[in-house]
Design a protein around this nucleic acid. Structure first.
Lengths: 337, 337
DNA sequence: GGAAGAGTTGAGAGCGCTTTCACGCGACAG
DNA sequence: CTGTCGCGTGAAAGCGCTCTCAACTCTTCC
């Protein structure tokens, strides 16, 4: 409380105990609830706590409970990506919400460029945090490593490793819905720009696209791999050059979709008249371009919130139901298709 | 380390001491550097540390040093704003960088809608954090309150309260540069869309705009207040309606500028031929619109990094030089002016 | 009336670390 | 050879908390 050394420092359990006329142990019991304490005693302790403005010392508590009270949201991507794609801040926000009134600190950890899986594992093992939510992992390596050194972690997106908790959107189904919409709107020569294909979500969205195309008897082989970044949306140029008769485009996230939209428009084609475009994520940017982007929702904040709840259960020693599959994302129809 | 209770737990100072054949105290001295320990002893301890993979327990350390090892980046804005304006993630990133190899956890704290200054002060006083960097404050209230309950905080942007450390961009000068550029490009009827005028940066940018206009003998009274959000850029509609002969627009941040750009274009005017526009912040979005936005740089990450360094000094008991004025931002000329 | 049980409470032992204080030891001067 | 000084080190006292264990006070039941 007071900063000036020597001045009155924060009240401790001991102080509360003295004021309430009970022992430290009893105060602790009241503070942590649960154990049985006589109603009258509880009352007296509560009063003393209020009077003194007592607040438990996290460090002391952490020392004995062996819990740091910190959980991390780990994003194995470079900072640039993290702060460029609105998906990540949202994901972080979801975790923040989940722990909002639980006295847990949520920190955001990102990869350094060139970071190894190892470094992340070491961070988790170093005792800085009690557990972690991993968002946007590439390939199963991290999950495999984590499953071995048993750390309480929950992935957002299929970790492709056995025995690891995760929540996942039905990306394939969402991609099918998006693709079918394109077809319904009259598109026949449809390409997809995927995310990085070492990521589960990217693979699943591609699969869904191809399913829907096959289902309609169309050719689902026009595929270009992007990187989920705005710049990588520029592969649309190549696609357009190779397939000038293109009339539909399913882009695996909005960041790329907006870039692709620009590419298509600059090529002299009209959207949606000549080329229909559907994106993914329903990012804010989808409403800032012209025409606005038709897209699939991807409530990142909700996903991490759920992941956080699983993590809480894990931390409490429970075995959460996993994988937790989320309800499929919704199609938001706007101007681009 | 190991999660399963009963299995080997993380090595402690004691363990290291035993292996190195010295006392706990000596190991502590080595770990924390500074105090004089014989070179040979130091070596032996270092070896033991490596061998055991020892890592100090933050809780135990925090308990005795009375330092939590956590600092907060506080943004008194709703989450929505925080995750919508790329300025904030960048600011957070700067703090992350500054503390990257210092074993300090950096948490991001935002306001709930309707939060009072009080709640922030209480958070800071609650002992959760050692100090804070405050990023986007409205008015001097928070700073005033913080100055009283002496917490180590550093503001990014003039807190307008005496005795509080801060770093600040020369917003007025930057606005002058931006406005002069508009004038040089031939604009004469220039309006400005400001940020929320309870914020120092918004006020200063307005002042700079009016200075430059006066300096050129032009009318600097066409002013519309925005809120630094994309939506608030739509006030451009009103401005345009009231001043159809407008030929220049200085918008106090890029988010609003992009919206304003759209408004201008939809009104049938060409940018930059009919209306020249200069934004502020040099956000990524400035390059994603067409034409790309001419804007002023605002290296948010660097500012918080500097603020973080001041905070570190403050925490160490020093008295940092404050205010720290940063070099004025640069004009980035692109298509819009 | 006394034993057994249920309901409350307190004493005390740490958790892993920092830091004060005192002591041992070699070097140097007297 | 003894006294002094100072560097290097260890013993030990907490930091504020949780939690086990034992004890104490009433009831309740035989």
């Amino acid at each position: 409380m007071a900063r000036i050394d020597g001045a009155h420092s924060a009240p401790t359990l001991e102080d509360v105990a003295r004021v309430a006329g009970v022992s430290r142990a009893t105060v602790s019991r009241v503070v942590n609830g649960g154990t049985l304490v006589a109603a009258k005693t509880t009352e007296a302790v509560r009063e003393a706590i209020n009077e003194l403005g007592y607040h438990p010392n996290r460090a002391a508590r952490a020392l004995v409970t062996r819990r740091t009270g910190v959980i991390a949201v780990i994003v194995p991507e470079t900072d640039e990506r993290v702060f460029t794609d609105p998906f990540f801040p949202q994901a972080y926000h979801g975790a923040l919400q989940a722990f909002a009134d639980s006295d847990v600190q949520v920190v955001l950890a990102m990869a350094q460029p060139g970071d190894s899986t190892d470094r992340m594992v070491r961070y988790l093992e170093s005792g800085h945090v009690d557990g972690a939510i991993i968002v946007s992992h590439h390939g199963p390596d991290l999950a495999l490593a984590l499953a071995k050194s048993w750390q309480p972690v929950v992935f957002v997106g299929d970790p492709e490793a056995p025995g690891v908790c995760y929540v996942d959107l039905d990306n394939a189904e969402a991609a099918r819905v998006a693709t079918r919409h394109l077809i319904e709107r009259g598109a026949r020569r449809i390409a997809t720009i995927t995310g990085p294909l070492d990521m589960g979500s990217a693979k699943a969205r591609l699969q869904g696209f191809q399913d829907a195309m096959a289902e309609a008897g169309l050719d689902g082989s026009i595929v270009a791999e992007g990187g989920y970044t705005a710049e990588s949306g520029a592969v649309a140029e190549r696609v357009l050059a190779e397939h000038p008769d293109l009339d539909g485009l399913f882009v695996a996230n909005d960041l790329m979709a907006v870039t692709a939209l620009g590419v298509v428009q600059r090529s002299g084609r009209r959207v949606p008249e000549d080329v229909r475009i559907v994106g993914f994520d329903d990012a804010a940017i989808a409403q800032q371009c012209s025409p606005q982007l038709t897209t699939m929702t991807n409530p990142a904040a909700e996903h991490t919130r759920l992941a956080a709840e699983m993590l809480i259960e894990l931390l409490a020693g429970g075995v959460p139901e996993s994988p937790m599959r989320l309800k499929p994302s919704r199609l938001v129809v706007r101007g681009s298709a």
